[in-house]
Amino acid sequence: MMSNSRKYAFSWDTVGAELSQARPGLGESTKVEVYRLFQFTLRDVLESHYGTQVADGLFLEAGVLAGKAFFERYCKDISEPSVLLKTIQDQFRELGIGIVRFEKADTENMVFQLTVDEDLDCSGLPDTADHICVYDEGFIKGILDAYTGLDFTVREIDCWCSGARTCRFKGTVSAQ
């Protein structure tokens, strides 16, 4: 039976503050491979315990939580859509998440289409038809949901390699 009190409820406090002071020798950044080592071993364990579909669902959910936390931290006071999109581009680059480029931002019909180059999760992976960017899908959905108050569905609709790997995502409002 699961206890009501939670050990790992997310807040930015759990990430830690003043990381540059907390790691004066190593600094506040680490290598992408370390990040991926953590993520893909966790995927491995989740998949082996719960199967691929559940593992992907859990990663998607974690991505949504991260996207909402990102919005709260970096975009909370933004009202203009164009400012939000620019902030997403700037912060993704600043934080090393990826290079975001919007292809479509239809705020009337609530359709957003963007590509992410040099993605933290999947750049450099082989160009396969496998659908692997579920965490990214959740992340983008978390931001759009938090900004609009709507329930978005975000899908990785394409990815390709031309040197670096690029993924294309499309966000639409979920059918009620």
């Binding site: 480029r101 919007f102 292809e103 479509k104 590509t115 394409d158 390709w160 031309s162 690029t166 294309r168």
Partner: peptide, 28 residues
């Protein structure tokens, strides 16, 4: 939509994405 994979298709997709993004930038 470009329904191919591989290096050539990747380059074409990159060109398509760049042009689409540029169009969006011009709209802004």
């Amino acid at each position: 939509d470009i329904c191919l994979r591989g290096s050539l298709a990747g380059s074409l997709k990159a060109l398509q994405a760049n042009l689409l993004h540029l169009t969006w930038q011009i709209q802004q």
